[in-house]
Write a protein that binds this DNA or RNA. Structure first.
Length: 373
RNA sequence: GCGGAAUUGGUGAAGUGGUUAACACGCCGGAUUGUGGCUCCGGUAUGCAUGAGUUCGAUCCUCAUAUUUCGCC
């Protein structure tokens, strides 16, 4: 079945929404944070650990699974859920972000995007049709349209052309889409131009997608521009469909964009930060490699209920990082993902009680406050 | 006891009679946003064993001392 979104309550003082998304693999409340498992695994975590941190939907990537192991392997395995032993919902990104991160401008044409296979040098062409075909085979719960994620900075002229192409690509993908168990999202582009965002939303809504994503953010733009990009999108999106902001995962940005009407987030940051020794805490981000934690026998975050905080100290995790033991990155990944998911839990409570704006004030005071070094 | 060789930062080391002593590791910081997973960017020896001498000038030359190491008795 297709996913279904129910709006439960809208915050009285902002655009923040408390909702429920119903999937083939259970129902989950929004706002929610999706951990990223690009290559059919959330780096260093087992599915059991993902359940422990209360993960709902996880995200995987069409481009990477296409190259390795190939969609036919996963199809043969019985689909992505069986292949990776994950019985929760999965969303697959279309490869659109790789257009931004890997392709050169000359590689982008109306037909699709040319890539070089990073493993064997083969020339590859990813098209909207191909992306959807792969995702249909992967059998994820939510597929994304193949779009062009435009970086920052850019010219308005380029964005205008890119939005039109992204719309044509969305249509082409939708026309070949044929997995009845799967839902398909359209992606709103248009950079920081309100008229382009509005136009993009209107055209996507005409095509009637199962949900909508906001793209073109978290690509190096200043925060105020990011927030405008989101405002200019949610302002025009239908209230009865879920909104997913792609790539955003900074704690403050999650709060700011929930306030602007976003329901779902994803970001590689909790796992990447973990691999580089950083932990998110109530009092800001800390670097556990710092010498000051050598004798710190307290948990990362006293207020955190995760496995790592319940059983391990900063000094121990610092030791693991210094010794390049992978358990350190795993403990930090567990913590950071739990941290962001817990943040969305708190946001849901706040929305329920119409105090989202107050929650933001209090959170920022702690996060950037004098406690933070 | 005699003879040889060596002595540069936390470590391994390059180097030159003349402005700021290479590089690597380590250490100390910072970055990271729909992940091209051990990445990227900074900082890190006011000093070349110690003392004396030669020289306009010495880490680099000379002598002594100390330490290490090798060989011989």
């Amino acid at each position: 079945m297709k996913i279904k979104y129910d709006l439960i309550h809208k915050d009285k003082n902002s655009e923040a929404r408390l909702g429920v998304i119903h999937t083939n693999y259970g129902s989950y409340e929004t706002p929610m944070f999706m951990p990223v498992g690009t290559q059919a695994t959330v780096k260093t975590l087992s599915p059991e650990e993902l359940k422990d941190v209360k993960a709902g939907i996880i995200l995987s990537n069409t481009y990477h699974l296409w190259l390795r192991p190939g969609e036919d392997v996963i199809d043969k395995a019985g689909g992505l859920h069986k292949f990776m032993n994950w019985d929760g919902p999965i969303l697959t990104d279309s490869g659109g972000f790789q257009v931004f991160s890997l392709a050169k401008p000359k590689d982008i044409t109306e037909e699709g995007v040319k890539f070089k296979n990073q493993y064997n040098g083969d020339n590859l062409l990813l098209t909207p049709e191909k992306s959807i075909e792969i995702q249909n085979k992967l059998d994820s719960d939510i597929a994304m349209s193949f779009d062009e994620c435009v970086g920052f900075p850019h010219t308005r002229e380029y964005v205008e052309k890119s939005v039109e192409r992204t719309l044509r690509w969305a249509k082409r993908g939708k026309d070949v889409f044929n997995n009845p168990r799967q839902s398909l999202f359209g992606i709103v582009q248009g950079a920081e131009y309100e008229d382009l965002r509005k136009h993009c939303v209107e055209e996507l809504v005409k095509m009637d997608f199962d949900g909508y994503s906001i793209g073109g953010t978290a690509v190096g733009e200043p925060k105020d521009i990011q927030y405008l990009q989101v405002e200019y999108s949610t302002k025009y999106l239908p209230k009865d469909k879920v909104r997913y902001l792609m790539g955003v995962g900074d704690p403050i940005d999650i709060i700011e964009n929930v306030i602007r009407g976003v329901d779902i987030f994803d970001c590689v940051s909790p796992t990447r930060l973990a691999r580089h020794g950083h932990a998110l805490t109530k009092f800001g981000k800390i670097n556990l490699k710092n010498a000051k934690y050598k004798m710190d026998f307290t948990p990362i975050d006293e207020s955190c209920d995760c496995y790592s905080c319940k059983h391990y100290t900063k000094a121990y995790i610092k030791h693991l990082l210094n010794a390049e033991e992978t358990f350190g990155a795993r403990l930090l990944s567990i913590h950071n993902i739990r941290y962001l998911i817990h943040l969305t839990e708190e946001l849901r409570e706040a929305i329920k009680e119409d105090r989202t704006l107050e929650f933001r004030e209090e959170f920022i005071k702690n996060y950037y406050g004098e406690h933070h070094e």
